[in-house]
Nucleic acid binder design. Structure first.
Length: 295
DNA sequence: ACCCGTGTTCGCTG
DNA sequence: TCAGCGAACACGGG
């Protein structure tokens, strides 16, 4: 599932479901999800209160407040969670059987139980003492989050000045634009009318501006698709209406493909109505683009 | 059986 | 030294 829009849904859901709630228990049902940490590391969460959820790119950063009996030792505890390829957060009544592929169970006081579910185990749930997320180099290196801070074309120009990588591969670097994944990269380039094979450093400033706008438009469009599917709780800090999908924030938007080029090889281009969507492989991943209007 | 996959990291190579 | 590539991770679906 997860690129920026899906992780944004997860972040809003977690905030809506758990912010202000106290943790009753944490159960790890597959220790591989801890990525080498000891199973006992999650005990630091028990008795704390979930204070906030932040999303940077595809990363979920949860902050839990001090334990009940030790307010003086105002030690926060963090959780860095990444959904990998198949991760998601679900909410279930405490007495229900756990969902298939549940890896971590989070029991809350006075609220339904939350599950981190991840079939392929590329995702993780890592406890971060002191909520000191910045000590992880990959987190410290993340670029500004596009949804909150926009995408600055001038910054793209500077960072891509010497890159010979194909532009599609270059924009998937999380230190450049966090949250861009294999789908959003193709979608953003199609909206911008740019050939994904172009060397990154060959794009001029007008093209980089179009690319920045195209990526943002695709992020927002995908979020709207989730909203229409009833899967999107209100923005963090926004009004608190309950999400209409009460138990699971999103299972699928149906069999409908909401994208303009992704997985549409052979179809007519929706942008120019002349070209044909073509699939190529770049850096081992599928890329889709219009053979006519992306130059 | 075989290939594919919305992500990331690591090791090898030129 | 380093950018760039392929493999590896794990497991279900077509």
């Amino acid at each position: 599932m997860p690129e920026l829009p899906e992780v944004e849904v997860a972040a809003r859901s977690l905030a809506h479901w758990a912010r202000g709630r106290r943790v009753r228990a944490v159960t790890v049902t597959d220790r591989r999800t801890l990525d080498g940490d000891k199973p006992a590391s999650v005990l630091a969460l028990v008795g704390t209160r979930m204070n906030g959820v932040e999303r940077i790119g595809k990363n979920l950063l949860l902050t839990f407040g001090a334990a009940k009996r030790a307010p003086a030792a105002k030690t926060n505890v963090g959780v860095w969670s990444h959904l990998g390829m198949t991760g998601k957060w679900l909410r279930r009544p405490p007495a229900d059987p756990p969902p298939r592929f549940a890896r971590v169970r989070l029991d809350l006081v006075g609220a339904p139980t939350l599950y981190f579910v991840d079939m392929r185990l590329f995702g993780f749930f890592r406890v971060v003492p002191g909520a000191d997320f910045a000590r992880f180099p990959v987190l410290a290196a993340l670029g500004p989050d596009p949804l909150r801070e926009g995408i600055d074309p001038g910054r793209l120009a500077e960072r891509l000045r010497r890159s010979r990588l194909p532009i599609k591969v270059a924009i998937m670097d999380q230190a450049l634009i966090p949250g861009v994944g294999n789908i959003q990269a193709s979608e953003g380039l199609q909206r911008a009318g740019i050939d994904p094979r172009r060397p990154a450093r060959s794009l001029d400033s007008a093209e980089l501006s179009r690319l920045a706008r195209g990526l943002l438009a695709s992020f927002r469009y995908t979020l709207r698709a989730f909203e229409r599917a009833g899967a999107l709780p209100p923005a963090v800090g926004g009004k608190t209406t309950a999400p209409s999908a009460d138990v699971e924030y999103v299972e699928e938007t149906g069999t409908h493909n909401p994208f303009r080029v992704y997985d549409r090889a052979g179809e007519r281009c929706r942008r120019c109505r002349r070209g044909t969507i073509t699939r190529i492989v770049q850096a081992g991943r599928s890329t889709y683009f219009c053979d006519s209007c992306q130059r």
